[in-house]
């Protein structure tokens, strides 16, 4: 067991526990975006920053990837943490303001404005869908491509992947998904017909081992009637 102090409260946790898990266990809320139970931690969104250490040696780390250490002093809501977190929220809002998930987080942290050039990205590269596809669906149909400003998520060669079962798991976890509908280009990764209320998933019957995550699924609802 490892003993650490979170916001002045001493806690003993098992080896291998992350700061995020320990803090949540003690009831300290830490906002997250790219973290999902059942998926490996990734540390992409930086929303879960916390301050560790004392005095001049204190630094900000992402709590979802930082394992608990013996005698570690953690502050989950210090002034510095809140400032950094609000900045992250502003940056998220600057890139993808239309996401309901990001709007909710911003409203919870009382961020009403952002100071950067407004963009309308349909992906924030949080990697949730990639991990969902690989770790829960065992498919590895989508992944990161390119780098820098050209980095994107999708299937190799932008064509329907052989291993994609159209389960919709990637859309289910996506915080920016509403705009990911590719129904007009059915060869793309995800059909996403949910958004335009026309019967999608026409190929659904071909997949016997399909695990569908769309709930409610417009296609199923329409077919039922």
């Amino acid at each position: 067991m490892i003993t650490l102090t979170i916001n002045g409260l001493r806690a003993s946790v098992e080896k291998g526990t992350t700061i995020l898990e320990a803090a949540r266990f003690l009831g300290f809320p830490i906002p997250t975006l790219c973290h999902h139970e059942g998926l490996s931690p990734y540390g992409a969104c930086r929303l879960c920053v916390v301050e560790i250490g004392d005095g001049p040696g204190a630094r900000l780390v992402s709590s979802c990837t930082y394992p608990a250490e013996e005698g570690l002093k953690v502050r989950t809501a210090s002034e510095r943490v809140i400032k950094a977190r609000r900045m992250v929220i502003e940056l998220l809002l600057a890139s993808c303001p239309q996401s309901k998930v990001i709007q909710d987080i911003a409203s919870r942290h009382n961020v009403r404005q952002q100071r950067f050039r407004q963009e309308y990205e349909d992906c924030i590269l949080c990697g949730l869908c990639v991990r969902m596809c690989e770790e829960q669906m065992m498919a590895k149909a989508i992944g990161f491509r390119g780098r820098g400003s050209g980095r994107s998520i999708g299937t190799p060669f932008d064509i329907r992947s052989d291993v994609c079962r159209l389960c919709g798991g990637c859309m289910q976890v996506c915080p920016a998904c509403q705009l990911r509908c590719t129904y007009t280009e059915p060869d793309k990764a995800v059909c996403g017909g949910c958004a335009n209320l026309s019967p999608p998933c026409v190929e659904k019957e071909q997949f016997h081992d399909m695990m569908c995550y769309m709930s409610p699924c417009v296609a199923c609802e329409i077919r039922k009637d």
């Binding site: 690989e134 590895k140 149909a141 989508i142 992944g143 990161f144 491509r145 390119g146 780098r147 299937t155 190799p156 060669f157 992947s161 291993v163």
Partner: peptide
């Protein structure tokens, strides 16, 4: 070539996504 990447994926046991990710990175 695309076929080459597919072949590399099947032969090495890496997923095509990873091979493509490396090739585009």
């Amino acid at each position: 070539p695309e076929e080459a990447l597919r072949l590399v994926a099947t032969e090495t046991g890496c997923s095509l996504t990873d091979v493509y990710g490396v090739a585009t990175f």
